[in-house]
Design a protein around this nucleic acid. Sequence first.
DNA 1: CGTAACTTTGATTAGTATCAAAAATGGTGG
DNA 2: CCACCATTTTTGATACTAATCAAAGTTACG
Lengths: 251, 251
Amino acid sequence: MTPPEGMERIVRRLALRGPLDEADKDAIRALGFVNRTIEPAAYLVREGEPPTICTLLLSGFAYRHKVTGEGERQIMSVHMPGEFLDLQNIFLEVADHNVQALTRCEVAAVSAATIRELAEAYPRVGRAMWIETLIDSAIFREWIVNVGRRDSISRISHLLCEFALRLEAAGLARDHRYEMPMTQEQIADCTGLTPVHVNRVLKELGRMGLIEREKRAVTIVQWDRLRHLGDFNTRYLHLEEGGPTNIASAR
Amino acid sequence: MTPPEGMERIVRRLALRGPLDEADKDAIRALGFVNRTIEPAAYLVREGEPPTICTLLLSGFAYRHKVTGEGERQIMSVHMPGEFLDLQNIFLEVADHNVQALTRCEVAAVSAATIRELAEAYPRVGRAMWIETLIDSAIFREWIVNVGRRDSISRISHLLCEFALRLEAAGLARDHRYEMPMTQEQIADCTGLTPVHVNRVLKELGRMGLIEREKRAVTIVQWDRLRHLGDFNTRYLHLEEGGPTNIASAR
DNA sequence: CGTAACTTTGATTAGTATCAAAAATGGTGG
DNA sequence: CCACCATTTTTGATACTAATCAAAGTTACG
């Protein structure tokens, strides 16, 4: 079973998305999440399979991807500790993409059916989970823009900015400095570029003095310039808690 | 008020996503949707504004887009009659993108707050709406792949296949023949290409005998070859009703 | 400490963009 | 109903971004 800290983390995260009362919180605590360790590159969800489990990422990174008929991979999102890994497929007949561990991960797992029942029995909890999936969607949309309409240097700058803020939100980065959890090949798969070109762009960003790199550690030296170059606006991340949901409930 | 046909269309569409009982259906019918006509190019949602209304598209087409700092537009999705237009923003503090009418549209509108209350009071209705947003997400993900990892001819072939099936599902096309609701410039904004290149690719698809065009009318002459060229697999559209939701409820 | 994975560099090519302009189409007001 | 103007589609010539191919360094790790 998930230790109390893991449990409370879930409760706290969901409570950010809309007020939950004690019965809601107890229902989450009673779910019986089971902890598992997932090895790097192991699949958590496989395209074409019906969704059976739903997991919360406690530590490590995971990513969502598809492979084209030509064998090229496109990563559609990267998940950080504290995020649900597969609320996206939970109500669909089959998963339409893969979810794979990027690094070694600790996850808390429950059956997908349990989550579906929880959402129906506790509407406020269901709404909080729904909002989690809507924020995933907002990030998907921004990635469509990134990959569709920005040039290589902007795409990578944008990704570096997004990671900085999301990692800071997860408590894994400070002062625009973090450990990049991906290889350059994986960055290429996020941005629709080739690994060779990603390397050249990263070097160029270093040469321009916008970032510094030391192995996988990235420091964004000139945040404002990088943000401008990457056409990065935080709006789509919906980092501030409390949207209209909270307003409505405060009436 | 929305005439009974519009109302029943909503009820039927949501009931496809998970069983609804009579109380659920009556709650939807009681919402008091108001019909409106929206002129082509009018905004239904504007980036940065808090979501206030939620609309169901009764006729016509609408699209979701963002504009980059460089002024380039990226379309993230196109909506067809029968689809909800802005469940995506309804629980978020501000809209992170625009929704605009592509053609003249008839919509049924209610306040966003009403929808939020409905979802909380009637969990099965909430779940059905949640599933609608999850299917939108599945399409967003496929578009990331399309724009990130397919070449121009595959991207456009993929888009043509997607439209054929979605329009057929909406009852607006038959035999892989339909009226394309977009200009070539808008197709370019969906696929991350330039209008000039879109034109050349469409001509090429014609020359290859895969499609025929007559003004905006498109006929897919060789479905299997176009589908193969576009690396198109219907899975992500989740067109078959009844996923695990229905299985669970059938227990 | 050897080997596989990852990063870096160089040379060349391919695929789309860009720029420019003509042809076709569609709507609108006189 | 026709003439006109704006929008859309089409074509051609050229430029440029990022891909490809190849291979040398570098790092991580069993």
